[in-house]
Each structure stands twice: as structure tokens, then as C-alpha cells.
Design a binder for these strands. Structure first.
Lengths: 125, 125
DNA sequence: ACATTATTTAGCAATTCTGCTAAATAGCTA
DNA sequence: TAGCTATTTAGCAGAATTGCTAAATAATGT
């Protein structure tokens, strides 16, 4: 019997694990941190300047990313330097940007009519 | 100047917009849906069987993904078929899987010592 | 030991997300 | 029109996330 879920789709924990990684990325401050770490390791205080939140908040963002294995850190004196462990995430985020561009073009294409005499809805239901 | 148009990603900073797309992915049910739609469009009822939640819940997951522009839908009779709009997200998710594998290997490598006489912490602080 | 700097942890209030049921809407057919 | 199926919307309660301040920990130097 061949249902939709007989490939990798049936594996429950895989999807949960993927979701955890994505949640660890899905925050503007954490994405800002990712972009900074793309250029090399940074200590927590440098990252605080970047994201502009309180230091404990930045520290927790870093912990969340470290907990799912996308960052690592090393201590040097009193400072802790974080670095990116999964470089392929950067091109993956590029795809997110492509999605954003495609979406905004689509909105312009279907919503920019001078007068609104049209009967059908702007985008598909 | 822009029309008021609905939403989501139009007037946000780049990092906020990216985060919204990632949040739209960061749920096991939605990732399951993504995997199914990788093989072609599916109607809502098929996807309900796949994720096993109530129909309204599945519908809302789909709306969330559509709101950020990664899915689109078309109506055929009483059914609504959803499809993937941003195929490059699939290899991007592969990178997430690589991150997961790397993380689990790292845990094995640093935590599997027969006896725990070691003084230093298992992984870096 | 004490002080200083850098970072993390605890704990709290506010917000957001999730999944449900009930009700509304959309399209089809008799 | 009414009746039927498929889907969406509304509204609620419970859970998770966020950002803060205050307190704890870590490494270093006096």
C-alpha cells in the first residue's frame, strides 16, 4: 500500500528536528547574528552592538542557536567567541531572499491596476 | 508610492521579512506539507491525512505559508490545491538536515566516553 | 581574597503561536 | 432553492517565545 507517507515523510522526529533548527533561525536578531558570523567569529559584546538588545537577550539568542548545533563557541579570557558551524545555511538563506523577491514581484504584478474595476480577486484564493 | 496592499512582507526590514519566511517553515506539520508538495500539488484534504491534525488547523498552516509567498493555491470545484512556489527551499532544507547530522555526530564524538573520569566539559562552553 | 569585566541563568510580564470546536463561506448538483 | 462537500474564519484556552532586570558564574588582575 502506497500512501503519501511511505518515503522519508513518515519520520516524525525528523520533521520535529528540522523545525527546531528553523525556529532557531527564525528571528530577526538571530538572522542578523548569522549574517555577522558569516564573516568570522565574533564575541558576544560585538554581537550585542549589532543587534541592539540587552546582553542577556543576545546571550540567549546565541544559546538557542548553539543548542540546535548551528553555532559553537570558544572562550578566550573573559570573552566568548561564537562561530558558525553550518556554512551551507548561508546559501539556504539566499533562497529565502529569492522567495521574498518573487513574492513582492508577484504582488506588484497582480495588484497594481490603476482603477479597481476588476471583478475577480487580486490573487488566487 | 505603494498601495495599501495586504501584507506581510512588504514594509519590513530584510531581517524581519526573512524571519517571517523562516517562521512559516518552522513547524513539523508545515515541513511535512512542504515535503509532500515537493512532489506536486495536493488538495487540503490530502494534506490533512498527511499531517493528522484537524482540517481547520491544516488550513491555517497552509494560509501561513501562503501569506509569506512560499505557497500558492488554485480552486478546482470544491477543492483547493496548494503548490510550492519556491522550489529552492527544498535544497535549503537539505542543509538543515546536514546541520542535524553534523550535530548528532558531534554529540557522539564528544560524549561517548566509557567512564566519566574526564575533567573538562563535554562540549565547549 | 577582592574587584573588575564578560557572560550566563533565573524569573517575570507581555506577546505570539497552536490546536481545537463552532460557525461561515464557496462551489456543485438536484 | 435546498442540500452536500470542501475549505476558511472566528474565537477561545493552553503553551511557547521574547525581552527585560536582577542575580549568579567565569576568568583575570591587584
Amino acid at each position: 500500500m502506497q500512501t503519501i507517507q511511505n518515503t522519508a515523510l513518515a519520520d516524525l522526529s525528523l520533521f520535529e528536528a528540522r523545525a527546531q533548527v528553523l525556529r532557531a533561525l527564525a528571528h530577526p536578531a538571530r538572522l542578523r547574528i548569522m549574517a555577522a558570523l558569516a564573516e568570522g567569529e565574533r564575541c558576544v559584546c560585538e554581537l550585542q552592538d549589532l543587534v541592539g538588545s540587552s546582553l542577556p537577550t543576545v546571550s540567549r539568542h546565541l544559546s538557542q542557536m548553539k543548542a540546535v548545533g548551528i553555532l559553537a563557541c570558544r572562550r578566550q579570557g573573559t570573552q566568548v567567541y561564537y562561530r558558525l558551524l553550518v556554512p551551507c545555511l548561508l546559501p539556504a538563506l539566499d533562497c529565502v531572499d529569492r522567495a521574498l523577491r518573487a513574492d513582492s514581484e508577484r504582488r506588484v504584478a497582480c495588484c497594481s491596476r490603476p482603477d479597481e474595476q476588476g471583478g475577480e480577486p487580486c490573487c488566487d484564493a
